[in-house]
């Protein structure tokens, strides 16, 4: 019951505020409270090289680059230091199976931390 109800509640709250796309693996806290899934390329690790001179999006010229907004907010907003430190972390590929599920449940059950066996952010190259 809760599993069915929570996605509705979550969407009702997060859609108006962050334009939430219900990816089911929320990273808002580490992206300057800006949803990376609203980037037309759904980039989760920073802006592409197509950001326009005025700071707007390559794909939607009328919209400010999601990652420019994220970066400005990360710098300006009063947020826990640890959240700011997470800004540059390597976020894994999205698990498409979680689309439409509640990220709150996935957070509690740690389902949102499951990554493919080959993926590891621990052993960085350099």
């Amino acid at each position: 019951m809760l599993k069915k109800l929570l996605p509705f509640v979550e969407h009702a709250i997060k859609k108006p505020v962050w334009d939430c796309r219900m990816c089911g693996q929320c990273v808002l806290h580490s992206t300057g409270m800006t949803c990376p899934m609203t980037c037309p390329k759904t980039l989760r690790n920073g802006p592409c090289g197509g950001v326009r001179e005025n700071g707007n999006c390559e794909v939607k010229p009328e919209m400010q680059c999601v990652w420019l907004k994220a970066y400005d907010r990360k710098v300006a907003l009063p947020m826990p230091t640890v959240w700011k430190e997470h800004f540059n972390e390597l976020r894994p590929p999205v698990d498409m199976r979680l689309q439409g599920t509640s990220s709150w449940i996935n957070l509690i059950t740690k389902r949102d931390q499951q990554t493919p066996a080959g993926w590891s952010t621990q052993d960085e190259a350099h």
Binding site: G46, P47, E53, G55, C65, W67, L68, A125, H126
Partner: peptide, 17 residues
């Protein structure tokens, strides 16, 4: 391309990856 400061951090991120 903006955000200029962040481009440097992003280069490091790519290097680390």
């Amino acid at each position: 391309a903006p955000p200029f400061d962040y481009r440097i951090e992003r280069a490091l991120k790519k290097h680390r990856a």
